[in-house]
Simulated assay, not measured.
Amino acid sequence: MGRRRPLRPLLLVGALAAVLAVLCVLSLMLGAASLSPADVLRALFGAAPSRYVENVVWSARVPRTGLGLAAGAALGLAGALMQALTRNPLADPGVLGVSAGASFAIVLAIGVFGLGSFYGYVWFAFAGAFAASVVVYLLGRLGRSGPTPVKLALGGVAVTSLLTSVTSAISLTNPEALDRFRFFTAGTMADQDSGAVLRVLPFIAVGVVLALACAPALNSLALGEDVAASHGRRLGLIRLQGVAAVTLLTGAAVAVIGPIIFIGLVVPHIVRVLAQAAGIGPDQRWLLPLSALLAPSLLLAADILGRVIARPTEVQAGIIVAFLGGPFFIAMVRRRHLAEV
């Protein structure tokens, strides 16, 4: 029996990978332009029947799918890391204002400082994400009970509302910033060139490494800060490493697809249910990578759905995710034991 049990986590990984692979294929096959599967396959292997088909596949659908994989993994992993680090089931880059901070900083870089290239404004995205996370945490600490889940969520909503208002004010005075603001508000993988994935990948890769390196310490932290300290964990270093990972993952994702919320909230909860069924339990060494594997599936599924439900136009993936994630967030807030924390 002891030899069979490790197969269950591997089966879960295989199932999630298979779902992701299917969604990647669908993302390449479906879109506003009606292309046959045969034409798409020929274009992928260098024998496109026309220049139009080649452009649709390689200039639109391949980058879009790649961004869905990279940014989805980043947002899912950031949400799982935030929930484990703060022991807050409502934690998510979008809910706690981290994405709004990155968006505000990007529009500020474009509208005020005139930085139009990715490598120009991505550093502002990191700074904005970090600053917003610090402000929300300090707001959540106000009062006797400390940073409870609901207080952090309310602080995130307040910071997001404030930053969105200021961002709107900046964008209204600058047409280029307005175009960027409209893009970041909706949250979409469309209208990106083929090099977008390559530009964002190094930042996400570093964030992934930092996040996964936190996993053993997070298992100790789940037992309490005193227990973690008794195990030799340096809590300050763990938090600093976690914040750095969340900043890189969220800032990079927002810089290319905008502030898509609820990915990091919903995915870790689904992963914990699946992990429990697979006999993994609350082991962050499994939960973090599984969140990074499942999140792109949700983002790609939302993007595909947005392409097909409103042809010949599209509904942005961020709108679809918000429509699905909003009720989940409300249900989480209304849970009795959360309301009393």
Score class of each variant (00 low, 15 high):
residue 1 M to Y: 11
residue 99 S to E: 12
residue 10 L to C: 10
residue 142 L to C: 07
residue 303 D to C: 08
residue 156 G to A: 13
residue 79 G to D: 04
residue 8 R to S: 09
residue 16 L to F: 03
residue 233 R to S: 04
residue 315 V to Q: 10
residue 212 L to A: 05
residue 150 V to M: 14
residue 85 L to V: 10
residue 88 N to L: 12
residue 171 S to E: 11
residue 280 I to P: 01
residue 147 P to I: 15
residue 220 S to E: 01
residue 137 Y to A: 01
residue 165 S to Q: 13
residue 66 G to T: 12
residue 340 E to V: 04
residue 227 V to F: 10
residue 228 A to Y: 05
residue 256 V to Y: 01
residue 198 L to I: 08
residue 200 V to W: 02
residue 129 A to N: 10
residue 316 Q to A: 10
residue 194 S to K: 08
residue 168 S to K: 13
residue 39 D to Q: 08
residue 172 L to I: 08
residue 277 A to P: 00
residue 311 R to T: 06
residue 157 V to S: 13
residue 260 I to R: 05
residue 293 L to S: 05
residue 102 A to K: 07
residue 272 R to F: 05
residue 327 P to Q: 09
residue 169 A to Q: 15
residue 55 N to Y: 15
residue 214 C to G: 03
residue 317 A to I: 04
residue 170 I to P: 03
residue 150 V to E: 15
residue 155 G to F: 13
residue 87 R to Q: 15
residue 254 V to I: 04
residue 265 L to W: 15
residue 172 L to H: 10
residue 297 S to D: 01
residue 18 A to C: 04
residue 53 V to W: 11
residue 211 A to F: 00
residue 303 D to A: 08
residue 224 G to A: 09
residue 2 G to D: 10
residue 194 S to T: 06
residue 329 F to L: 15
residue 99 S to V: 05
residue 338 L to I: 15
residue 217 A to F: 02
residue 115 L to C: 06
residue 79 G to N: 04
residue 138 L to D: 05
residue 235 L to T: 07
residue 299 L to Q: 02
residue 118 F to N: 06
residue 328 F to Y: 12
residue 226 D to C: 09
residue 327 P to F: 10
residue 309 I to R: 05
residue 106 I to N: 04
residue 227 V to Y: 03
